[in-house]
Nucleic acid binder design. Structure first.
Lengths: 202, 202
DNA sequence: GTCTATACACTGATAGAC
DNA sequence: GTCTATCAGTGTATAGAC
């Protein structure tokens, strides 16, 4: 049999995939699917070109994996914030704070940038956009019941909670676009401004 | 000299460039810069491959021209709406109505899709993002004085009008993203929802 | 598991006939 | 002005040595 233990083998495997994941996330988030080459990913990861193809069958498979994982992580983080105790509007305030501070300026900014690229370029990858849209709708469904509660409390706008959730996340994506421009304006975006999309008029 | 009259020559020229423009707009708006090839543009325009290069020196030149023209048209349309008589909040209502109805669902939807691609892929075209950001800031400057007036009227949120203008247009771009998903939600977005980003709390 | 070398299709751009 | 043919470079993916 192999002189390497099974667990050591496993470790090499996960280490390599982790390196590929981080490199691909960075490159795809910055330059998009068509703007990134497998050569760039290999170089960024520090591994050889062929090794990337040892772990992933194609460039598209890498992209799908990165996008799926990023979305799942984002949804999970959102779900945890909304599941904490407190009234509906407080939860929305917490989420908005998280999104503006942590996500738009912090480390997980790459996630939102990646989703941006995925949505915009989804049409050119057959079957991808439908898959992506399904995942994003799961996002809406996490937020909409909280919005419905806030409506009952009289603090959120009337209207279909699902539509409002979609509008809210659209605004978040729009703010990620603002971040790309790097004009300094994004520093002045407050959680309050984001919450305004959902706030009742009077 | 040439058997063709000068004006006839001119007409062929403008006809061809117009065809290239429309084809490139459609392709770039749908598939982005890196996702579109010159072959596709030529095919879509109905002209030959070589002729595209007769009118434009490079793919990048085509892209820059399309993006610049689209942005200029959008800014011009916005300026015209905001210059009409009426109080500040009415102007914002008119603009929001225009953006939601005409732009996000109408023909000029391609413009916003194109800008989306341009911003997201701008990093991979040297010097392009800075140029683009400059143009978009002109956009903000058209809207911000109207917001300032609405603040004096007590109907708009307090805060830097320029930042609010940036947030407003970010939301519009976010809604264009929603349109890409084609889930039907975008049909339920109202001008009122868009205006909510700027509306005073109470 | 890791690497280098290579096959093969496609892309941007050019040349040159008409 | 319009077209086809072609070049040089790059991209994805694979083969095969270690």
């Amino acid at each position: 049999m192999s002189p390497r233990g099974q667990e050591q083998n496993e470790q090499m495997r996960t280490e390599a995939t982790e390196k590929i994941f981080m490199a691909a996330l960075k490159m795809f988030a910055m330059y998009g699917y068509h703007g990134t080459s497998m050569k760039q990913i290999a170089r960024q990861s520090g591994l050889s070109y062929g090794l990337v193809y040892h772990y992933f069958p194609s460039k598209e498979a890498v992209f799908r994996h990165i996008v799926d994982t990023s979305l799942d992580n984002s949804i999970q983080a959102t779900r945890m914030i909304l599941e904490k105790p407190g009234d509906a509007w407080e939860k929305i305030a917490d989420l908005s704070s998280f999104l503006v501070k942590e996500t738009l300026n912090g480390d997980s900014f790459l996630y939102f940038l990646l989703i941006l690229h995925a949505m915009v370029q989804g049409k050119s990858i057959p079957g991808f956009l439908a898959h992506l849209t399904g995942k994003i709708e799961a996002y809406y469904q996490v937020l909409s019941p909280v919005i419905a509660q806030a409506q009952q409390d009289g603090v959120a706008l009337p209207g279909d909670p699902y539509v409002l959730a979609a509008a809210y996340f659209s605004f978040v994506q729009g703010l990620a676009l603002l971040q790309i421009q790097d004009s300094g304006i994004e520093q002045h975006i407050t959680p309050n401004l984001l919450m305004n999309v959902l706030r009742a008029s009077k």
